[in-house]
Design a binder for these strands. Structure first.
Lengths: 248, 248
DNA sequence: CGCTGCCTTGATCTTCTTCAAAACGTGTGG
DNA sequence: CCACACGTTTTGAAGAAGATCAAGGCAGCG
């Protein structure tokens, strides 16, 4: 039977500084924008990156900070967000190992447009704007790969704009859960568990609603047997049902 | 005194097919991603583009259409939008001459994620995905320039997400008007006129509100002497006042 | 004129927020 | 192992913002 249980999320045990050289190479090699480069290029590029451990909750940078670095997630999950004047937070995305964030003078940015926070304990790799510029000049394919990724993110952002403009909290929450599940869901006895500690507050910040409204909607979803959830975790039990509510 | 007057917008008189070779070269040359290329490269690239005239209201493509072309606005204004299941529309942006839109297999897209419509009569230039791919390979600087532009659009989109999640219709409308004014505003006896026929419906679609709410808010702004407006036009009279409402 | 499409305004209803309080889970220290 | 404390979640009731429904007004155009 379904129903609230203890948290089923397997927490990654990580010592903040555990970014071994081996892991770094592995991460860099499989980055979408480096994956076509030969091994020796990767090692050369690796030397330009600096590792930085970060505990859950740590802010990596704040919106408005002068931004001259690019970051790559090596371990853990990073949350991109913006603060509103009201103190409210808006979550713009959650990044997994292998994804990049930050900003670059190359991209016409001189300060970070949003805040980055470690959502779970992990480790990020940093490169300076100047060094990255060198890579771009040396390997033209890299900028094309980045273009692809940024385009995908733009499409994603527009999808969210569409939802925020035209859908109810109910649909938005359903869509958000489905998106999270497809990104970091793990099948676990008939359910699709979202492998990420996720509070109601987080979901509220992702959907542009309040904690209370999210809690109510989640309770309703639970009654409808669409999801299963507890303290800081969610699992999807009826994917099609949620899709229906999300508006396909 | 201020107050409603006849439409002060100067309509561009354009014969749909008036895209002369001279104009095409001029447009292409000043495109942000071609501007560093030598003249002979531009003429060579020009040969790959096809011109297409479009009357106001004409749909250039619909969301979901298989997308294998990139477009560049030569004359007029193009509106990017999405339809909601409810029939509601969401405007994602308005593009001026020199801006590009559409999608490309290169960018990981195989169907258009949104609809493009001529907002005023104008002319667009088209290039096939394959041909554009050739340009990218031949001139690596182009993909870097495109990366810059797409990054800027992503930032813009995230800004809108932030607003939709955390601000009232009042702030959103103020911010939208300011953005439009900075993009296509013209100073005209003490006012900043937005050079674009703009209905209440358009503004509603841009801010995620209804026509009625926009109309009410505009009336309020007019009473507060922040703007001046009439049938399908708007001018800003108190920029700082609007900025205040937009939340700086 | 009188039509057609855009804009405005009012009244009512729905959705979501806000405020408030209670219940539950988890980790901690006895 | 238990009990307590804290942060998270839940639920209720009241209120506000905006949507919806419904009329009427005004500009531009044949």
């Amino acid at each position: 039977m379904a129903g609230r249980r203890k948290t089923p999320i397997e927490s990654e045990i990580i010592e903040p500084q555990s970014c071994t050289v081996h892991l770094r190479l592995h991460i860099l090699k499989q980055l979408p924008f480096f994956k076509d480069l030969p091994d020796e290029a990767i090692s050369q590029i690796n030397a330009l990156f600096r590792a930085e451990g970060c505990e859950a909750g740590k802010f990596i940078y704040f919106a408005g900070d002068p931004g001259v670095s690019l970051y790559v997630v090596a371990q853990g999950k990073i949350k991109l967000l913006r603060h509103a004047v009201t103190g409210q937070e808006v979550v713009l995305g959650i990044l997994l190992p292998g994804e990049f964030f930050g900003s670059l003078p190359v991209l016409g940015e001189d300060t970070h447009p949003d805040t980055a926070q470690a959502h779970t304990t992990g480790c990020v790799l940093t490169i300076t704007g100047d060094d990255f510029q060198k890579i771009l000049q040396q390997y033209p394919g890299v900028s094309l790969a980045m273009l692809e990724i940024v385009s995908a993110r733009l499409r994603e952002a527009r999808e969210i704009i569409h939802q925020l403009s035209a859908s109810s909290v109910e649909s938005r929450l359903a869509a958000t859960l489905l998106k999270l599940a497809s990104k970091l869901g793990k099948t676990q006895n008939d359910e699709l568990l979202i492998q990420l500690p996720l509070s109601r507050q987080d979901l509220a910040d992702m959907t542009g609603a309040t904690v209370e409204t999210i809690s109510r909607t989640m309770s309703q979803f639970r009654k409808q047997k669409l999801i299963d959830s507890g303290r800081r975790w969610v699992a999807i039990t009826d994917r099609d049902g949620l899709k229906e509510i999300a508006g396909l």
